[in-house]
Design a protein around this nucleic acid. Structure first.
Lengths: 152, 152
DNA sequence: TGATTTATTTCGATAGTCAAACTAATTTTA
DNA sequence: TAAAATTAGTTTGACTATCGAAATAAATCA
């Protein structure tokens, strides 16, 4: 590994750690205080993976959020009971369960997207367009690196 | 909120979401495959909060990682049993439990720090010093924003 | 000293996870 | 085309982490 690019590499590193450690529980806490206090952040990620228009199967969603099939089933049960998502057996292959958001599900989904947009806006606060491009490149670096780690 | 700074704001936003959603489970998976497969990522965060030289009390650590006192007790039990941390009653106030890392604890702590340093290095991959400063400013924006959200 | 506060622990209940066994639907193969 | 294998999802049982309430013990206040 070559020389650090920043004198205060450690400071950046610590801030990054703090972001990772805090974002999760802030989302969790925000959910608890909201109108949607009956779901956890993990539930939220399930809803997010199902998303708006896709009609994904249960196993596709399980793969996205890294749950075993059995855990996926109970997670779906929970969210169906609470009225956030719907189960529909596929007509073309009656083994598969297609998942979709209910009206209530679409409302939380959009609220959660709003939270993430706020994060992104704040990330770019006070940046010139060219600087914003640099930030984008940095985040893209991270995505590529993580994708690489996953593959191995 | 003013105009987006990037034409492809959405793309950046999506990548940021993907980073948040993936970092956690990658850390989790990395732990499972490692020599330290007997601890979870949450355990790792406890170890991280205790850190190297501080001698924090149980309730201080609980506050940092947002656990209730009772959950903190059992989390400590777990990590003591597995040999990662040590409990010492304070001499000046015998109600308080001071926590410290064992040798094994310090080893995982450093390994985990290494993981985060890799992330930071990759974030800055192919950046000029001035660009690295911009990235640093962006992350700092995020930290400030999150700190602000916490306060409310 | 007696009452109150503080730090931690114990206990009972609950929720989410996994692995293994199972059901039902579809595809392969002989 | 009937039997075997595969695939998608569910059920069950065991386990773990969490919480809230009550208990314990030490320190501080009045």
């Amino acid at each position: 590994m070559n020389e650090p690019l920043l004198e205060d590499f450690e400071e950046l590193n610590n801030e990054l750690v703090s972001v990772f450690n805090n974002v999760m529980w802030i989302e969790e806490a925000a959910l608890k205080q909201s109108y949607f206090s009956d779901i956890t952040l993990k539930d939220m990620h399930t809803i997010d993976a199902i998303s708006m228009y896709s009609e994904k199967s249960a196993s596709q969603v399980a793969k996205i959020i890294h749950l075993t099939p059995s855990a996926m089933t109970t997670a779906i049960d929970r969210l169906v009971d609470k009225g956030y998502i719907e189960r529909r057996r596929s007509n073309t292959d009656r083994r598969v369960v297609r998942l979709g958001l209910t009206h209530k599900g679409r409302v939380v989904y959009r609220a959660h997207q709003g939270f993430h947009r706020d994060l992104t806006h704040n990330l770019l606060d006070n940046m010139q367009p060219s600087e914003a491009e640099t930030v984008k490149r940095a985040i893209h670096n991270l995505v590529s690196y993580l994708a690489n780690v996953i593959k191995q």
